[in-house]
């Protein structure tokens, strides 16, 4: 990458995203539905532990391969530089389908960003399908130091699934002129009332369906381990080193699935919790209605 990287001191602990970049991501992700897309983030990592994202641009959808078209990226940044846009790549974004992010692709991509570009690179995950009913679903993630260190050693080691990715809080900021604009143009339509939507079924159905898939996959991975362990015992070859050979099943796969399921459980719990709340509210309203 030809970008100049300005190294800040220390790790960042918060991501500030400008409204414009936010809109660009939202637009790109929604326009490209149903396919999932990626793009780059431009901005600056400040010394106060804040990563500022000021612009975002899409990666062209290159068909099937997951390779990011570097020529496009470099060219786009060169063009944007001519009109005084921050010319500093600080991460990437991706649209995700119902919170499925714990995958090998995201891990590898983020790993290369964090090792080659800057240790402060983040990935913004935007969920076009969960952004509905008044909820906004965008999260910033990066790999933990522990995970990066482990991947650099290229060993087939164990890491706690919850410690692979870490979330960084995201906050939206606006330039003064943009502030003036949104003060005037704020939509008066009530997305607040959309939250009272009582239907939960399709959402939970989809979640359960995916959960089943993930559990199957986890079981598959476990089986691989089982076969391999048996194979080792037969050969009386119980050394630790045999887990680092190339034929040993990769632990990361199963750990990622583990992390994904954990997240799904959390999402479902949260959603079910909210659903219960709304349900009892509706129930209460109805009873009062009936008695009066």
């Amino acid at each position: 990458m030809s970008a100049t990287v300005i190294e800040p001191e220390g790790r960042i602990n918060e991501v500030h995203i400008e409204g414009l970049a936010l809109m660009e991501i939202v637009k790109h992700c929604h326009d490209s539905l149903p396919s999932m897309v990626t793009g780059s983030l431009l901005g600056l990592a400040g010394n106060n532990g804040i990563l500022e994202v000021t612009r975002a641009f899409p990666n062209p959808d290159s068909g099937k391969d997951d390779e990011i078209d570097e020529d496009f990226q470099v060219e786009m940044m060169r063009m944007l530089r001519e009109v005084n846009v921050d010319n500093n790549c600080i991460g990437w974004y991706q649209s995700v389908y119902l919170g499925i992010y714990s995958t090998q692709t995201v891990l590898e991509n983020q790993f290369s960003y964090q090792t080659e570009l800057s240790p402060n690179a983040v990935v913004l995950l935007y969920d076009p399908l969960q952004t509905a009913n008044g909820n906004f679903a965008m999260k910033a993630f990066r790999l933990t130091e522990e995970c990066v260190a482990m991947k650099q050693k290229e060993k087939n080691d164990f890491i706690k699934p919850a410690n692979i990715f870490e979330e960084v809080p995201v906050k939206c900021t606006n330039a003064p002129l943009a502030k003036a604009m949104i003060q005037e143009w704020t939509p008066t339509s009530d997305i607040e009332l959309d939250r009272l939507d009582l239907s939960t079924h399709s959402y939970l159905e989809k979640h359960l369906q995916y959960l089943c898939g993930w559990v199957d996959e986890l079981a598959g991975e476990q089986q691989k381990f089982q076969y391999y362990t048996r194979h080792l015992t037969k050969g009386n070859n119980k050394t630790k080193a045999s887990w680092d050979t190339s034929e040993a099943p990769k632990r990361m796969e199963s750990l990622l699935v583990n992390n994904q399921i954990q997240n799904y459980c959390d999402q479902m719990d949260r959603f079910a919790g909210g659903g219960l709340g709304k349900l009892f509210l509706a129930g209460g309203l109805h009873k009062e209605d009936g008695s009066s």
Binding site: M23, P128, T131, N135, C172, N174, I182, P187, S189, I191
Partner: peptide, 9 residues
């Protein structure tokens, strides 16, 4: 989504 986004801003 844009409305939700604006609202967030």
């Amino acid at each position: 989504p844009e409305a939700i986004c604006l609202n967030k801003m």
